[in-house]
């Protein structure tokens, strides 16, 4: 037997597929899997939400006394005034539980609907709205969230998101980070669609109560002005709420479609001084 010194012609120990190809395929697989499972689990959340009646919901949350700490509460006058405007809308919606309002002293221009029926309004919002119609729209928007059960949906999806993230933290941290970002994007997209739906409900309530939809876009326009001035800010209203102009446009289109009139708005300052 002779020893022949030579080099192999091919390197059989390595694959010759391009790594970018492999990378793209695997990424597509992972992201597809995540979005699909998020979508499917979200579907089940919606199913569960639809099966809980508003009555059950009210009972469920009545027993849970969560101490929401958003900051210092505003004066009684402010609370009562906002509550009055909210209660006046009661004839125009069919939410079967009480919706108490808490006004919190804060520069934030925001309002939110909490599970159990509580609506939190940040006083910054009251400062940037001039008419009671404008405030009524914002409150009606939160009522819209209750009507569409968005608070339950968002809790359910939050749990799904947390569960999926936890599942993935077992994997490499950079990958789970990436996947969590992907899911958060999906979540934001979903939230936007819920916001549009709440706007739609709010417009309906506003038209029912005042007979016209004047003032519906007041907050968004005020925010737009401020956005121009501040550019960035702690307005976390923007995070999940679709871009302001889009929302204004959607409201215009809907008003036209449903033949809602735009009437004169009532000044908020006339009725009570904050």
């Amino acid at each position: 037997m002779k020893y022949q010194s030579s080099l192999p012609e091919h390197n059989d120990n390595v694959s010759h597929q391009h790594p970018v190809r492999e990378f793209a395929l695997l990424m597509l697989g992972v992201i597809g899997f995540i979005l699909l499972s998020f979508w499917i689990l979200g579907f089940f959340v919606d199913l569960a939400v639809d099966s809980i009646s508003p009555k059950d919901e009210a009972e469920l949350f009545a027993e849970i006394d969560i101490d929401w700490d958003f900051g210092e509460k505003s004066s009684i006058q402010k609370q009562t005034r906002v509550q009055q405007i909210l209660d006046a809308l009661r004839l125009c919606h069919d939410i079967p539980f009480a919706t108490p309002v808490t006004v919190v002293e804060s520069k934030d221009i925001n309002a939110m609907a909490l599970p159990g029926g509580r609506i939190v309004v940040f006083s910054g919002l009251l400062d940037s709205i001039k008419s009671s119609n404008g405030l009524a729209f914002v409150l009606a928007h939160e009522l819209g969230h209750f009507k569409n059960r968005d608070h339950l949906r968002s809790i359910g999806r939050g749990i799904v998101l947390a569960a999926l993230s936890t599942l993935l933290t077992g994997a490499n941290s950079s990958i789970s980070q990436m996947l969590t970002s992907t899911m958060t994007l999906g979540q934001a997209k979903y939230s936007q669609s819920r916001e549009s739906k709440a706007d739609e409900t709010a417009l309906q309530i506003l038209n029912c109560h005042y007979g016209h939809v004047g003032g519906a876009t007041e907050l968004f326009e005020a925010l737009q002005e401020q956005e121009g001035a501040w550019n960035f800010g702690m307005l976390h209203y923007f995070d999940t709420h679709p871009e302001l102009q889009n929302r204004i446009n959607a409201i215009y289109h809907l008003s036209k479609e449903r033949d809602y009139q735009v009437g004169k708005t009532q000044s908020l300052d006339n009725s009570v001084s904050f």
């Binding site: 390595v14 790594p19 492999e22 990378f23 992972v30 994997a171 490499n172 950079s174």
Partner: peptide, 20 residues
């Protein structure tokens, strides 16, 4: 890049070409 690719591989299984 290789490490990321290998971790992705961990999810699906198969040869880790990046390390070959």
């Amino acid at each position: 890049f290789k490490r990321f690719l290998a971790t992705l591989r961990n999810i699906f299984g198969g040869t880790i070409q990046a390390y070959e």
